[in-house]
Design a protein around this nucleic acid. Structure first.
Lengths: 194, 194
DNA sequence: CCTACCGATCGGTAGG
DNA sequence: CCTACCGATCGGTAGG
């Protein structure tokens, strides 16, 4: 199956892009890592740019699907947020290389695609804002700027790929629990319990 | 003074790098934005790479200096953290283009310099960990993984450059206050006050 | 999957 | 500050 080779090429490319950046990664580097010559890559992929597009949109789809499931299954805002955070971290840690491309290299998408990508990204962020809204009307979350809170949550989630190591001591589940607690209850101790 | 031209070149380069990335920004682009020819740039700067180095280290110095001042002036952990957050946001928003380079393009530094940069970055993070430690021993902050908390705080701070617009409705001071509250007290409402 | 090779563009130098 | 130009490298094609 040619398709397996294609997958292999894309995965190697993602890994190199994460290590060195999109522009700094040449097709000759990708080929070398696979033990073939650069022109041979083009029997399986259309272009370097197509790898970028596929990676960005594949991950966007995963994020959006996961969030839709959360909204289907849970009703309680805190459960929704905890599960959404867990899912997000799971997708990131299962696809570290692709996630790097998704987060940092989407700017290299060209114009019809970049607009489309930004729309999907905003749709996902809107899902988080929606959960926060639900929590506020349930009286569980503080009144706060939804957009601001959603951005702050996603930023602390996305930063994970900068320091997460599969060989490290924390599992994605533990990271999710810790980060959820941090986000949900904050750094300060309740003075009441002192 | 030649030095003014140099500053001008670096600022234009930072702006273009933020918009398009380090590798995607050519010296010809920088020259064009200044209305001169590319070779003329080299009368004022040594190389493209030197711009990257100067930008990264200049900002690192600003961050570290600001944090040292906080530790000199304040004793209380909450005040320290609030001020450190405010200073960090101030440096980011006053140097948006340079901050982008500092945060995203330091990976393009080459080897002796990259190590040195990472050391400075870690020194700065250690300062935040130290403040959190102080807060824990003061009984103001919850017992929590210091490294994890520091990373999460810095990630939500650094994400600001992705969405901050000087023309937007929030001033850096307001962002700092809001983010400090968010970090210090968390999203969930104290059920006790319900 | 390869060899041979392309047009374009890159950072940078020589020399004025 | 310019013109002229360099060696290297890029993504990708032709043809097998």
């Amino acid at each position: 199956m040619q398709n397996q080779r294609k997958t292999q090429i894309i995965e190697v490319a993602q890994k190199l892009i994460r290590a060195n950046g999109y522009h700094a990664t040449g097709m000759r580097d990708v080929a070398k890592a696979l033990g073939i010559e650069a022109p041979s890559l083009y029997n399986h992929i259309e272009s370097k740019h197509a790898i970028l597009e596929e990676t960005c949109f594949e991950l966007a789809a995963q994020f959006i699907t996961a969030l839709a499931e959360v909204n289907d299954i849970y009703f309680n805002a805190e459960e929704k947020l905890r599960t959404a955070i867990y899912n997000h971290i799971n997708i990131l840690t299962e696809n570290l290389d692709a996630a790097y491309v998704f987060i940092h290299e989407w700017k290299n998408l060209t114009e019809p695609k970049q607009q489309e990508f930004m729309r999907l990204r905003d749709e996902y962020e809107a899902g988080f804002r929606e959960i926060i809204s639900t929590g506020i009307s349930e009286g569980v979350f503080k009144e706060s700027d939804k957009k601001f809170a959603a951005l702050t949550i996603l930023s602390s989630l996305n930063w994970i790929i900068e320091w997460y190591k599969p060989s490290g001591s924390m599992t994605p589940k533990e990271i999710a629990a810790k980060l959820s607690d941090f986000i949900l209850s904050g750094l300060t101790k309740e003075k009441i319990y002192n």
